[in-house]
Design a protein around this nucleic acid. Structure first.
Length: 710
DNA sequence: TCAACTCAGC
């Protein structure tokens, strides 16, 4: 018989045991939640066996799954003295979290008692794995469903954009909580069906912040920023996500004044908000403001860096982009995918081969170079840097190519005037079974155009629609007009324009005008210039070109009329500039002289020396380009000082003998410079590669790869 | 102690 005293002792010791069980279980859970797996395990191991509750075991197993250590989790699970349904469910969800769906299913099939959580976890697993069909099969087999199960299934249907099926399921739900309705609203917003979303929203008896934010973001993302703002103003409560959603509504629609105001009002500015402002300002052309946001930030993430680099790249601040990329490396920021891609594009537009190769090395190191997307950007970079050998090498490394990669190579050869090679790649593409798309045809048609293959070009154009089911777009017609025009069939080109199924744009008329200039067709030139004046009233180029044509025919009165017309209106003038890379440094030259360049004296000396050599070789400057350059480049200066000549002179001074001199120009190369550089290549015995706004010119031994046809 | 947890993002 146990006395009162004995009974109290037993009770007391039981109470103590429960208390210490609770406190150790709590400690384990606390450590596990905060990701301190080591501490959790220490408390677990130091707890004597009888004090380890089943929930401590479950928590430990879950913690290992959470920490991506499924094998350790499984090992612990197998050592458990007792298991309950929660333990088995934890095994299912743990496997699913670690992407082990098949193992989860095996556990599910083998476990003793399945409850609604077991079933729902499995359904969720299939939804996550994008196997919504299997999720549905399981869902309809469930013996019991609760609101969570229904919501998981609803999420699966919405994930597949099966909005009508989702709505049917939604209507069948015996009970709908805030989460379920918000899910449905989000689905409608995703599809742009704002009225249906709003109807559900208005009918809700209770809403939370997330529901409001879903609706605000739905309006914001679908171009109804003002409605979004009205809702935002009346929200009973806002969180960081609400502010970010509203801000993005403004930045993505380019409404930077409002974005800026909202940004200043934000109680908490997250890194994403600053990144949004950088992109928003930058893409709206306010690069200085974008930079200021960047500099004022305390904590930057890799998205911050890639945002500003991208802004610089898109807005033509190539040197700044490279500088920022360098700073990023100096500050030890881990290079990320978007930055590398942006910088490769910068290297491409700057034709900075040294930097491009450096980035390529980094890509290899980080194994990003195995990616098809990256490889295509790399090919384009090498092509734009004028290094077709390296472009081809990257191209050849991929046995399985996608259409983008084929297009990069075709366009590359085409831009270098290698029509034959471009067409060969196109035929290989056909045999490899990859279907050409609209971009492919822009490549092959311009290849035909640059290399004077009129017959092939016309045939390819015909085959586009009948053989490859690619509908010709405006760009393809522009290529064809260019093809006919360059080959001297200017009237046929005009006939084609009249027959086009769509309204011709400035590129089409520009192509015709170029052909008119080459083949001196004044009548059609005047028509083209009229059309271009309507389409691009700010562009002085066509008028300058026409004026040059009048001048060369001695029609000085017409020249005068045009000149007056140009003075009376304001035109955008794109200043001509050329650049060259020497020892990883990009040297920019604008027209005129090399003032501002530290090595100006030796550059001018080189130009004088070249002048002498050229005169000896029988060069005489072409006066028509002095009067008005085609591209409106600094006409007050004499031909000797065009930017491309300055860059070539600098290249002759700095690029080692035997290496090609690679010069870039932002406009089309001027005709006089073209003849001069041909001769420079001859008298100096150097190879000069000039990339202008349209294409590449390889100068060697007095000849150019474009065969004076550009 | 197990399932859903919906909204912003590159």
């Amino acid at each position: 018989m146990m006395g009162n005293h004995g009974r109290a002792t037993v009770l007391w010791s039981m109470l103590l045991q429960v208390r210490s069980q609770c406190s150790t279980a709590n400690a384990i859970a606390r450590y596990a939640r905060s990701g301190q797996l080591g501490h959790a395990r220490k408390v677990f191991d130091e707890t004597p066996l009888p004090l380890r509750t089943i929930s401590s075991w479950n928590t430990m197993v879950a913690a290992y799954f959470e920490a991506r250590q499924p094998h350790e989790a499984l090992f612990l699970f197998q050592r458990m003295p007792h298991r309950n349904t929660v333990s088995w469910n934890g095994l299912i969800s743990g496997h699913i979290k670690n992407g082990m769906l098949l193992e989860a299913r095996k556990v599910f099939d083998a476990m003793p008692d399945r409850n609604v959580v077991s079933w729902t976890s499995m359904v969720r697993g299939y939804v996550r794995n994008s196997d919504v069909a299997e999720a549905e099969r399981l869902f309809w087999q469930m013996p019991d469903k609760n609101v969570v199960s229904w919501t998981v299934m609803l999420g699966g249907l919405l994930q597949e954009a099966r909005i009508e099926d989702a709505r049917k399921l939604f209507d069948m739900m015996p009970e709908k909580d805030v989460v379920a309705v918000t899910n449905m609203i989000g689905g409608y917003c995703e599809e742009g069906r704002l009225d249906e979303a709003r109807e559900l929203f208005d009918q809700m008896p209770r809403r939370n912040v997330v529901t409001w934010t879903t609706m605000v973001s739905g309006y914001a993302r679908n171009g109804r920023v003002d409605v979004a703002r009205k809702l935002f103003e009346v929200m009973p409560e806002r969180n960081e996500v609400s502010w970010t959603a509203m801000l993005m509504g403004y930045t993505h629609s380019g409404r930077m004044r409002e974005a800026s105001k909202l940004f200043d009002m934000m109680p908490v500015k997250l890194v994403v908000d600053c990144n949004e402002m950088i992109m928003g300002f930058g893409l709206a052309g306010e690069v200085d403001k974008a930079r200021r946001v960047f500099e004022e930030m305390k904590d930057r993430d890799d998205g911050t860096w890639s945002a500003l680099i991208k802004v610089y790249e898109r807005k033509g601040y190539e040197l700044e982009a490279l500088g920022l990329f360098r700073r990023m490396q100096i500050e030890g920021v881990v290079l990320n995918f978007p930055s590398l891609i942006s910088v490769l594009s910068v290297c491409a537009s700057l034709a900075s081969l040294d930097h491009g190769r450096q980035v390529h090395t980094q890509l290899v190191r980080s194994e990003f170079d195995q990616d098809l997307y990256v490889a295509s950007v790399l090919i384009t970079m090498y092509v734009k840097c004028g290094d077709l050998v390296r472009a081809k090498r990257v191209f050849n490394r991929f046995p399985l190519k996608d259409v983008v990669m084929w297009n990069s190579m075709i366009t590359g050869y085409s831009q270098h005037g290698l029509g034959e090679e471009a067409l060969n790649v196109f035929y290989n593409m056909g045999s490899s079974g990859v279907q050409p798309d609209d971009v492919t045809f822009i490549g092959v048609l311009s290849a035909c155009s640059y290399s004077g293959k009129v017959k092939e070009g016309l045939e390819l154009f015909e085959s586009m629609k009948c053989k490859y089911q690619v509908e010709p777009r405006l760009e393809h017609y522009a290529c064809l007009v260019d093809l006919l025009g360059r080959a001297g069939q200017v009237n046929d080109a005009m006939k084609l324009i009249q027959k086009m199924p769509m309204e011709p744009d400035a590129i089409v008329w520009g192509a015709l005008l170029g052909a008119c200039r080459t083949h001196m067709n004044l009548d059609l030139a005047e028509i083209s210039v009229d059309k271009l004046a309507q389409l691009e009233p700010k562009n002085a180029g066509p008028l300058v070109l026409l004026s040059n044509m009048y001048a060369s025919r001695g029609r000085w009165k017409d020249v005068e009329v045009l000149r007056k017309k140009m003075k009376s209106r304001s035109f955008m003038k794109l200043p001509g500039c050329s650049w060259i890379e020497v020892e990883k440094k990009v040297h920019m030259f604008t027209g005129g002289d090399s003032k501002g360049h530290p090595e100006q004296p030796i550059i001018m000396k080189m130009l004088e020396k070249l002048g002498g050599l050229l005169r000896e070789a029988g060069y005489c400057p072409d006066g028509s380009f002095v009067l008005h350059d085609v591209d409106e480049e600094e006409k007050t200066h004499s031909l000797g000082y065009h930017s491309e000549k300055l860059a070539v002179a600098y290249g002759l001074l700095k690029v080692p003998e035997g290496m090609p001199i690679r010069v870039m120009k932002n406009l089309r190369v001027c005709g006089d410079c073209h003849s001069a550089i041909k001769l420079i290549a001859k008298v100096t015995g150097r190879e000069i590669i000039l990339r202008d706004a349209n294409r590449f010119h390889h100068f060697k031994d007095g000849y150019c790869s474009c065969k004076d046809y550009w």
